[in-house]
Amino acid sequence: MLNRRQFGLSVAGTAAALGVGPMVGRAIAADKLKVGFVYVGPVSDHGYSYQHDLGRKHVAEHFGDRVETTYVENVAEGPDTERVINQLAAGGCGLIFTTSFGFMNPTLKVAQRFPKVKFEHATGYKRAANVATYSGRFYEGRTVCGLIAGKLTKSNIIGYIGSFPIPEVVSGINAFTLALRSVNPQAQVRVVWVNSWYDPGKEAAAAKALIDQGADILSQHTDSPAPIQEAEARGIYAFGQSSDMSRFGPKAHLTSIVDDWTPYYIQRVQAVLDGTWKSEDYWGGLATGTVILPPFNPSIPEDVRALATKAVEDIKSGALHPFTGPIKDQSGKVVVAEGKTATDPEILSMAYYVEGVQGTLPK
């Protein structure tokens, strides 16, 4: 396992995890593709970085000795990012996945220096000849969670723990709230921003504050299971993030929005091996299996389970779009007209709260 301080001294990847010894000091076959991954959190976060690393492990298993994988975890979104990506490229990686929004500009800068290296940036929107982008339609899963929350809440107060107020997170809050209020117009969403993707202490404190304010269900767009654990301790419900977090709160956990990156990673590595890789944008959701909802908590009433299951199928088929108008923002202004649906560019630039979200969106 690598951290940033160790990275300059040695490079270790899945080799250690698979029990085949470190890469340092041995020759790598000329035809072996070296694939690097950069994570914003630890692989033990049980959320976002954990899921990306599962995808990396599956790549190693799928391709065997045709591929060598390596990763760097706990890379802060800041000056250190460019250095880490640059070292992976200079170290022989032919394909590099950078997995957090704040890695976007550093990825582009390094890509200019290494035009023969292929780069893939998760959740961003800037591309180049050797830089592709990919993400998940997480908001689709949050629509399903909102429907469940609207049916189960008793207090009509839902707590939502947000990381950073970027469109990816804001669109999730809005999709959740629209679905929530479609079945329970009295329900409200209260958001606490922790300004971190992974900080169990801050996430736990936010969860406690929201529960103290009357929230009887929590949702989160942060990566640790701390909110699930707080919900379990306080006897309320919660939704997990990025991975199936049911083991951290079996009674509290209603479902999670699981990110399954494995099929995409295998496809893109294969494209590099085949010489068919090209820069493109991928945005997968429930229909592609990029976003998955694990089994619902057995305590959810059958009619609510049926409602949620139908929503999943309707989103997959295209019969339901989470952002179908009329949609109003907090001020009452119509932002999506009746009979219209928000376009992808509109979702990717969402910078407002819909009706039903309390508080002011940070700038």
Rank of each mutant, 00 (worst) to 15 (best):
F119P: 02
G92K: 06
T81S: 05
V75F: 13
E120D: 07
P79R: 02
A76I: 05
T98W: 00
K126L: 09
E68I: 08
T99S: 06
A90K: 10
T69S: 00
L88I: 04
A129L: 00
T107S: 13
M104E: 02
A129P: 00
G94K: 14
G91H: 05
A128F: 12
E82N: 01
G136Y: 14
T70W: 10
Y71E: 01
G102Q: 08
F114L: 15
G124N: 15
L88R: 06
L95D: 07
L95P: 10
L88E: 04
E68S: 09
T99L: 02
V72I: 15
C93G: 14
Q112E: 13
F103G: 09
S135A: 06
L108H: 08
G92C: 04
K126M: 11
V117F: 14
A122V: 01
Y125K: 09
G78E: 10
Y134H: 01
G124H: 15
T81N: 01
R127F: 11
T99Y: 08
T107F: 12
E73D: 10
G78H: 14
F114Q: 09
I85A: 00
Q112D: 10
V84G: 04
L88C: 05
G92V: 07
E77C: 13
N74A: 07
M104D: 01
N130F: 15
A128N: 13
V72S: 13
F97E: 12
T70N: 13
V110W: 05
R83E: 02
